[in-house]
Simulated assay, not measured.
Amino acid sequence: MTSLAPDRPQSRAAEPATEGRRSTLEHVLVIAFMIVPLLAVAAAVPVAWGWGLGWVDVALFVVFYMVSGLGVTVGYHRHFTHGSFKARRGLRVALAVAGSLALQGSVVSWVADHRRHHAYSDKEGDPHSPWLYGTGPRALVKGFWHSHMGWLLERDKTNARRFAPDLLADPAIRRVGDNFLWFALTSLLLPGLLGGLLTWSVGGALTALLWAGLVRVALLHHVTWSINSVCHIWGDRPFAARDRSANVWWLALLSFGESWHNLHHADPTCARHGAKRGQVDISARLIRIFEVFGWAHSVRWPTTRRLDRLSRGTAVEHAV
């Protein structure tokens, strides 16, 4: 349980952490994916006041939030980034597609950024640590903005050859990554199409596009970004970790268990982040279902002995 990317050559660590800069088009798309969903949230209030919020909108919102959110937490994060479990080919591709629907970047770029985060967590080189500017109030305000959203505006690209060579070597996953924009458009337009068909109205299509498309993406973005910001500043730290990762209970449901962040950084390849009694971890439940059906195997579940060791102050080493 020591490697962030199984079978990754150690010589890769000699390569630089970043490689080149985003193109102007890539930079514009990042800004658009950040801003447009936020504008939709602002528009949603008067829309809800004037037209209401129908059950079709709510149902589509929940379905698309769960599919895209779990695509990130189970797929992008626990499977592709940390190898918490192995998946059959069909499930592996489905998880990459589901994660792409969250509009958080391609599977290759997301994994590369996150592995880089773990390599330098809360130190120089971490792409989104809130502690890079100091510990004073003003520095933390600046750090919070940087870790939550600001880092996305930087144009340096994480070196995927160093941090995600296993994904680059997988033709099916690389193909999903190359088609990220098409999956992003599908994620926004499909809710509108379904809303129009289910209500048989243009109004139903527009409200579904707003709520299950744009507003859903905005909420999921900020929940994910809160793991980078909130969960590295405030919260409980019952396990030994080499950074300031913490557990934030009130984010657990919306983040599908990702906000039990302290154990994750203490033991990055563990498939369950909420390992203590009462810590809801929907992502781990889904992995367990995949395991029962035989779609996932070699799952790295926590053990009592391992948790006791982490509680006593011994963090798990992990390679970069």
Rank of each mutant, 00 (worst) to 15 (best):
W249G: 04
A42K: 00
L286C: 05
V63D: 08
D281L: 03
V176I: 14
W55H: 04
F80M: 05
N247E: 15
S3Y: 14
W51K: 12
G213S: 15
F290M: 04
Y65A: 13
D236L: 02
L140W: 14
G177D: 09
G274W: 10
R300Q: 13
M66Q: 10
V280S: 07
R309E: 15
S100H: 09
D243W: 03
A17D: 15
D122I: 11
F64A: 04
T269L: 00
A59H: 05
V215F: 11
H146W: 15
R174A: 15
E317N: 05
E15G: 04
R300K: 11
G235C: 09
H148I: 00
L263I: 06
D267L: 07
H118E: 13
R237I: 00
R277F: 10
H221Y: 11
P165E: 09
W131S: 11
V62C: 08
R306T: 07
I227W: 13
S255N: 08
R174G: 09
H117P: 06
R174P: 05
G75V: 00
G274A: 08
A5T: 11
R237Y: 00
R216Y: 09
W55D: 10
F239N: 01
P130L: 03
R288A: 08
P127R: 08
F180P: 10
W260T: 02
L206Y: 00
C231L: 12
R300S: 06
F290R: 00
R162M: 14
R272Y: 08
G195I: 04
